[in-house]
Every structure is written in structure tokens, then in C-alpha cells.
Amino acid sequence: MINLRRHRAILLAYLGMLLLLLLTSVVAPGFLSAAHLRSTVVLAAFIGIVALGQTFVIIGGGIDLSVPWVLNAAAVLMTLAAAGQNGPLLYIVPLLLVAGALVGAINGLGVALFGVPPIIMTLAVNVILQGGILVFTGGAPTATAPPAIQFLAVGRIAGFPVILILWIVIAVVATLLLSRSAFGRYLYAVGSSAAVATFSGVPTLATTVAAYTLSGFAAALAGMLLTGYTAQAYLGMGDPYLFTSIAAVAIGGASILGGSGNYIGTIAGALVLTILTGLLPALNLSNGALLVVYGVVILVTVSLGSESIAAFLGSFRRARRGDGAAL
């Protein structure tokens, strides 16, 4: 049984996405071609994979601002270590995924065990990684991505983008984890109310650490895949993903305060953001104006979906009807 009330925000996200597609096809007629749609979905996949971890962390009531440089570090270290060769990837990729997960675990422990506010903890880790990579590379890494990675990012199997297959697998696993596993239950509980979760015997520490660990893992994975798309790693390549990873989750209907949302929503969020990015240049806006519109649209979308705004508008309507007076 589908509960409309509960999934209203997610439905809204998909409706918004369709609306945007229609709008785009009017403004830029070539947009709905198969080739263009495919490239849009591929671009959305990167956002979707980065936002995978962010989804878990935000549902658990936290936020991960270390995404950009975990992503960037994994990308730079992978290209440097592999030096364009496929062979070394066999141990480099697993090693870097574990390293990303470890960074996430440190975030989680800082938040759940030592009580550092998530914003501070993950921002600090982000800056530390940024500095570390700058020192390590001397400022200008030049290595290119190995062919295997490029295949994963831009290759096709029977005309179907490989990255999309990967994204679908990730989406299935993430959705099962959230809706059908004990970990998922605990995560929503911790995000709803850490106190209630504790009183109910939920392992809150382990749950929080696991969410951040997953986020570190996802960021590292996305970083390496992204080098395949851009053909090389460069400093600052992760920076756009800070805002987009959070925005995708929020547009997807999750409460930024935790306890609600799911990955199906995040997928819609990633698609909306990508379509928007494609649409705005078609309107012949300058780069600056483009950013302004981008920000405003995201703000409005997220606000419309947010429970508190809905409640606020609702109370406004009630007050005008006059039955708010009893309060």
C-alpha cells in the first residue's frame, strides 16, 4: 500500500522533474533527444552517487560537509597512484574506498561519541583533507584516469551507459537498506529523536557511525568515477558537490532535520538538479545570473517540500478561517 501523505514530498519531486522536462523541451527543443537525455542521466548519476551517503547521513539527523574533499582526495590519489594504468586499480580502488569509509567513520565518531556538532566536525575534516592534498600534490596533479575507470564512467554495454547500471544497483541496495533493514529502521529513529531511539534500545552510536562511514565510502567512489568522466583529476573538482549533494536530498523530500526521506527521492533530486543545470544555459543567462536562478529554484523547491513550511502555510490558512483563535 502506498501512503500518499508520507510520500507526498517524493511525488512532488518527481512531478517537479517532469514539469522541468516539459519546460526545457519548450525552451530548447533538442533537449528531449535520446542522446541528450542519456547524458543528463549520466551526469545525474554522479550527483546521485555522491548524494547516496548524504541521504543516509541527513536521514540520521546529521550532515556531511566533508564530501567535496573526500571525493577530491580519492580522485587525485587514484589517478596519481595508477598513473594511467589499469593494473594497479585492483588494490588502489579497494584501498581508497576503505580510506574514504575510514574518514567517514572518524566523522561519525566525532559526532556520536564526542558530541562535536556535525557541521563543525565534517567541515573541519573537509578542510584538513583539502590542505593535505594541496601539500601532497604541490598544487597541480596532472595524472589522467586509467581506461578501466573511463569505461565505468562513460562506457556503454549494448548502448546502455555503464554508470547507469552502477547507479541502479546502488539505488536498489540503498533502498533495501533504508526500508527493509534493521539499520534503516534505526537510522530513521536516530534522526527522528536520538533520545527516543536510546530509550528504545537502538544502538545509536553504531548507527550514526555507519551512516557517516557510508557517506565517506560513497564520496570516494564518486570521486574515482568522476575522474573517468573528466578524464583526469583536478583540485576543486569536488566543490560543486557540496551543495548539490545536500540539495538533491532535500529536493527529494527528506527533512534536513532528519528522520525522513529516502533514496528514491534523492534520485529525483539529482535529476532535477541536472535538468536545471542544462536548462538555464539554454535561457541565455550569464554565468552569474545562472547561479542566482539555480540557488533560488532550489530554495523554493526545498521550501515547498518541507514539512515546517507546509505546517506554516497550513496554520496561516487555519488562522484566516478563524479556528486558530482557540490557541
Binding site: S181, V196, G201, E307
Partner: peptide
Amino acid sequence: HGLMLAKSIRENLTLSVVRRFTRFGLT
């Protein structure tokens, strides 16, 4: 301390016993 107010009766009732209806890792 007692209830997740925004969550369903079902999710509240079973929060402490998720393992009782989990088989092979899936609820």
C-alpha cells in the same frame, strides 16, 4: 523519550524489536 511523534504507530511499536521480524538481513 517515548515516541517518535512524526512516525507511524507501526514504526513506534516495533522499534525495539526489529530483530524479531528480520530474516536474512531483511525485515
